[in-house]
Design a protein around this nucleic acid. Structure first.
Length: 487
RNA sequence: CGGGGCGUAGCUCAGCUUGGUUUAGAGCGCGUGGUUUGGGACCACGAGGUCGCGGGUUCGAAUCCCGCCGCCCCGACCA
């Protein structure tokens, strides 16, 4: 290192993925100006405007989808009485190690300690019990946009921070069937959102008992493959059964006059999605954003020498900018005088803007503009009249190209495997997903984890039945599950 | 919590081994002025640091000793 020739390349240097993937990730986050480690608060991050703008886009679309399905937003306290956490046995056990606890308030020791919420099943359970008394109150569908705190051992910006932003949906139903239906419906919302908006294909499936949410009957997940072949859990949906209903006494009187416990679900996605977005599409030049989540769709860079050129070029830039905005795109006309066009190109590239437009004197003379798409390919020229429509169409093309590329990557890094020895070899190499049989035994699952650090990411939904051996013990498995190393 | 690395200007670091020629430096970034502008511009001038914190050794500490704190990386945990 240090053999670079100084200049601004130094501080905006992005480590190539092939050399050090973890460093590359941090470099992209920094160079795209998405977030920075809070430093003064261990494990926490500052989400900077460009990063937060992506989160707002994610929020807007998910919020729209939730509301369309009848969920209503609400907000519950940040603090949870410690006794609440203890009411559901498995829940306490799962979350105890990572709780932040408030012991002093207003200078006085509290009579009951307060937990900074790691998730809100307990406190929402408490209020559900007050709000629900009849089958007529069901189903109850609530969503909360909030921050939560989990004292994780090893934080990573966006992927695993001590405090993170998320949405948590909580619903209560009269029957288990209805709750299961809800759980799967929300999983589907996540799956389609990831595919359609993030251009990120995911595998929707069920977690094994050892990987499920503490307190759930069954947990479902969407698993995405990152560019280093590792899996990232991008969202979860839980069938909570009556576990929290019983712990918090959430009962209703049925039509038949019987007192019953409700069946609940919970589901969530977090700012981790931004990490997923980065590791799914970005390259050695920085962030690559799918147009549907890009805060800025197009950056227009004017090129000029004289003042006269500046005036006419800027006029053309603003005209195109206005036309694009009228078509619903978010546009920046980069008229900063303090940096050269080249510097602007690099900046917008690092920030993942899907399309860049250049307009200079030569273009004005020829009645054209130059366009470069962020996801690859050479710069090309389009007539000024056709530019706006072309760029709008380009957004869909890029969205689609990114999705296809990610899907192809996943397919080409997914292998089918029946032998444990072969599996160990795969996990020692460039990794990826492995479709292998699993007999259902926790000890076989544990052996995989101990020897390779890989885990069963999920049992895919609608999994075809096939006669294959358990990859570990060789007993008949009946279906294949997804094995991978995870973040 | 175990293993490793590191704290000197906004950033990346040099200086520390062998304490004093360092009124603490460099490059990048930042400010002003000028020349520039189709893939990271150049020149000139300038602003900017109680050397992570606390103690100790010494005539003298960024440099040596002790303690503490923090950050990063690798594991176990997780959205």
């Amino acid at each position: 290192m240090g053999e670079e020739t100084g200049s601004r390349e130094q501080e905006s240097k992005i480590t190539p993925r092939a050399r050090d993937y973890a460093q590359w990730y941090q470099d992209v986050v920094r160079c795209a100006d998405l977030a920075e480690p809070a430093e003064v608060v261990r494990g926490c991050m500052v989400i900077k405007p460009h990063g937060y703008a992506i989160w707002e886009k994610i929020q807007a679309e998910l919020d729209r989808r939730f509301k369309a399905l009848g969920h209503k937003n609400a907000y519950f306290p940040l603090f949870i009485p410690e006794s609440f956490i203890r009411k559901e046995a498995e829940h306490v056990e799962g979350f105890s190690p990572e709780l932040a606890v408030v012991t002093i308030g207003g200078g006085k020791e509290l009579t009951e300690r307060l937990i900074v919420r790691p998730t809100s099943e307990t406190i929402i359970g408490h209020f559900f019990s007050k709000w629900i008394s009849s089958y007529r109150d069901l189903p109850l569908r609530i969503n909360q946009w909030a921050n939560v705190v989990r004292w994780e051992m090893r934080p990573r910006v966006f992927l695993r921070t001590t405090e993170f932003l998320w949405q948590e949906g909580h619903t209560a139903h009269a029957t288990h069937e209805e709750a299961i239906e809800e759980t799967l419906r929300m999983l589907e919302v996540y799956e389609s959102f990831a595919r359609e908006f993030m251009a990120m294909p995911v595998i929707a499936g069920q977690k094994t008992p050892s990987e499920k949410f503490a307190g759930a009957l069954t947990s479902y997940t969407i698993e995405a493959m990152m560019q280093d072949g590792r899996a990232l859990q991008a969202g979860t949906s839980h069938d909570l059964g009556q576990n929290f209903g019983k712990a918090f006494d959430v009962k209703y009187l049925s039509r038949e006059g019987r007192l019953e416990y409700v069946w609940q679900t919970s589901w969530g996605v977090s700012t981790r999605l931004i990490g997923a977005l980065i590791m799914c599409h970005s390259d050695d030049n920085g962030l690559v954003l799918p147009p549907k989540l890009a805060p800025i769709h197009t950056a227009i860079v004017p090129i000029y020498k004289s003042d006269a050129e500046r005036t006419s070029v800027l006029e053309a830039c603003n005209r195109l900018g206005g036309a694009l905005r009228n078509k619903g795109l978010s546009v920046v006309v980069d008229d900063r005088d303090e940096c050269k066009p080249g510097a602007k190109f690099f900046e917008w590239e690092r920030k993942g803007v899907p399309a860049r437009v250049e307009i200079g004197p030569k273009d004005l003379a020829r009645g054209q503009v130059a366009i470069k798409r962020r996801d690859g390919g050479d710069r090309f020229f389009v007539s000024g009249d056709a530019a706006a429509d072309r760029i709008v169409a380009l957004m869909d093309e890029i969205q689609d190209a990114l999705r296809k590329r990610a899907l192809e990557f996943r397919e080409s890094h997914t292998r089918t495997c029946d032998s444990f020895d072969e599996f160990v070899g795969i996990m020692a190499g460039p990794e990826g997903f492995v479709r292998g049989g699993w007999c259902g035994d926790a000890s076989c699952e544990a052996k995989v984890r101990e020897t390779t650090r890989a885990t069963i990411r999920c049992i895919p939904l609608n999994n075809p039945k096939e006669s294959c051996p358990c990859m570990v013990c060789g007993k008949p498995a009946g279906e294949r599950v997804i094995y991978a190393k995870a973040y």
